[in-house]
Simulated scan of single mutants.
Amino acid sequence: MMNPSKIKEGGVEYSIGKFNGKTMSYDFDRILIYLNAKGKLLFGKHFKICEEDYSILWKLTNYFIRDPENCAKHNIDPDKGLLLSGPVGCGKTSFMKLLKYIVPHRKPYVVMPCRNIVFGFNHIGHKIIEDYGNTQSFCFDDLGVEPMGRHYGKDCNVMGEILISRHELFLKAQIKTHATTNLNAQELEELYGIRVRSRMRQLFNLVAFDVNARDKRK
């Protein structure tokens, strides 16, 4: 039987809590130690979780471990996906790539840049929209800054169409969709329209970095 409290990385075993055979109790301090180590493996030796991000990481961690009390406290529904918003370079993509590793017993999602999806549409057309409307879980990275799709001279708001498909999938089969964005709610509505925006409210929990969060790439 898998013990979700123990995770091995590069020959080192990390404990992120205690498991009694039935229930798991997580330890946030231990999770931080593990995430710093895993982040260095994924993103290089200079990766470091900054103290200023602990509060948002606390919210995200509670979502991923499905802690009912703390999710309720932060108005997060663990059955919906995440829309993680914040300024350029604040760490949205890194966190979404990283956090799925604290729950290795759950089916992982694939992080996919929205611009790559649009480039795929430009080459092969509407099959791309079908491909992303399947039962795989995705995190659409950098939602809202992708170009308009164009195939055989016809324009298409590719990510808008995909979000409508993902909404149907969520209603039918409770399959989650996650996304990261630099845009606010008003900008997303202007880009995708009110129809898509209302579906996004059902699809996502909005979790936002502070608007003044610094660019960690600098």
Rank of each mutant, 00 (worst) to 15 (best):
H123A: 13
F119C: 03
D79S: 15
H151G: 07
K22R: 14
L188S: 03
N116R: 11
M24P: 09
H105M: 06
R30Q: 15
G10P: 00
P87N: 09
E161G: 01
E161Y: 08
P4T: 05
L206I: 13
G120H: 06
K45P: 10
Y54G: 00
K218M: 08
L188Y: 07
E161W: 06
S15Q: 11
Y152C: 07
H167R: 05
R199Y: 01
A208Q: 10
Q186W: 12
K80H: 01
H178Y: 12
G120C: 00
R106S: 07
F119V: 05
A179D: 04
G11D: 11
G125W: 04
L41M: 11
Y101L: 02
F121Q: 02
K172I: 12
G133M: 09
Q186S: 14
L83F: 11
D215F: 04
F43P: 02
D210A: 13
V207Q: 06
V207S: 08
C139L: 09
I76C: 07
Y34W: 04
I49P: 03
C50V: 13
Q174K: 15
N3K: 08
K92L: 12
S15Y: 10
L183D: 01
C50A: 14
L84T: 01
H74E: 11
G11V: 02
L32V: 08
L99R: 10
V12P: 00
L41R: 13
I31D: 00
A37R: 05
G81D: 02
G133E: 06
L32S: 01
V158G: 04
K18D: 14
G160M: 08
H46I: 03
I164T: 11
F138E: 01
P87K: 03
G89R: 07
H123E: 15
C114N: 00
R66P: 03
F119M: 10
V158I: 04
M112V: 15
I162P: 00
K107T: 10
H105T: 11
I129H: 06
N20L: 13
V196L: 07
G160S: 08
N116V: 05
E130D: 12
I33H: 07
K100H: 09
E9S: 12
G193D: 04
G17K: 05
T23K: 15
F209M: 07
G39A: 08
K107R: 13
